[in-house]
Design a binder for these strands. Structure first.
Lengths: 195, 195
DNA sequence: TTCTAATCTAATTCA
DNA sequence: TGAATTAGATTAGT
């Protein structure tokens, strides 16, 4: 059944199982490592190609009996099956079905599913919320708990969301600064030095 | 240059001067502004309607003198003009020039244009590179920095490209899983229930 | 058109 | 607190 999910491109690539060796041979010049060493590094898990998914939040949630009240019976019936192995299972496979839901149902369903997955549903800030947050950010990129609380109340958001938003906003600012600095340096030199 | 980190989208959002009241009054240490004053500062710029082409990457690039050494003289002449207002520039008009370029010139020009726009030129992985990446992916979908670095060296790619490739590959896997699950659900129930 | 590289952001982990 | 990283959603190039 899983095979049907693979695109033709994937299927085509899957037809060439053991050709890594040939590649390595052609690249003998700088071969101080072997693919085998990499492959050997991670032992597979029942054929599941995931060694270290780094998803700690799954640990605390994969034993909960959630989704008892999903809006659609069909789906509430399926989800417990997904529970068995979160890694090999498409957690959002059901999202495909959303097409057949009303807007309200879809939202509520998405929320349930996200919670089931152990991940906070992605917050969709409104235009106005972003606007206020940006304006505050221009003046103070490190608002204290009091400001955050006040913003939370005014914008009808959890204080946690405010906190996270500012963290990411600062990260974004830093990143852009870094990049512009980098480009600036780059541009002080002729193109043939960088290209 | 902090201002340049804000996209035009941010500017565009600044059009709902709402009352967020004076929450700052409760806090006196960090910031002595009121939200109103902050919002008041951002009453749109001049009369510019600010259309939004959604090019966030421009944030870090629209103030830099790039393309000082374009490979094609004709175009290197043109691009600095675009610089003045990247958002109001009709890219199609630039593409017009392509008709007068050879294939090689066109390619190199496109690359420069991408670079100018602040987007990295799309990397074209070779067959061998894809093959190795796929083989590693089957065993470990979440390679650490060490494996990525090693792959980068072996495949003559930036580590960043490796990282991005695995991200996109995981997304693709998820997508295909999602689809197969959807088909499974669909096949489990009569068509009239979901279609 | 399809596939996918590149980008952006919300969320999370860890030092 | 911030850097690194993940998922997920888009954008856009081939």
């Amino acid at each position: 059944m899983a095979g049907t999910s693979l695109s033709t491109a994937d299927t085509a690539r899957a037809q060439t199982p053991q050709k890594v060796a040939s590649f390595v041979e052609t690249k003998t010049t700088q071969c101080s490592f072997s693919i085998e060493s990499i492959l050997g590094l991670e032992q597979k898990k029942d054929g599941i190609p995931v060694a270290k998914p780094h998803r700690p939040w799954m640990d605390t949630c994969n034993n909960l009996g959630i989704n008892l009240c999903l809006p659609i019976p069909v789906i509430s019936y399926e989800i417990p099956l997904f529970h068995l192995n979160p890694y090999s299972v498409p957690e959002e496979s059901v999202l495909e079905c959303e097409k057949y839901l009303s807007a309200t149902e879809r939202l509520s369903y998405k929320r349930e599913l996200s919670w089931y997955r152990g991940r906070r549903p992605r917050t969709a800030f409104t235009r106005n919320q972003i606007e206020v947050l940006e304006n505050v950010f221009r003046v103070n990129a490190y608002p204290g708990i009091d400001v955050r609380e006040e913003l939370a109340q005014k914008l009808d958001l959890d204080e946690d969301r405010i906190q996270i938003w500012f963290q990411n906003r600062r990260a974004k600012l830093k990143r852009s600064h870094r990049e512009s600095q980098f480009l600036m340096v780059k541009n002080t030199f002729p193109a043939n030095m960088i290209d």
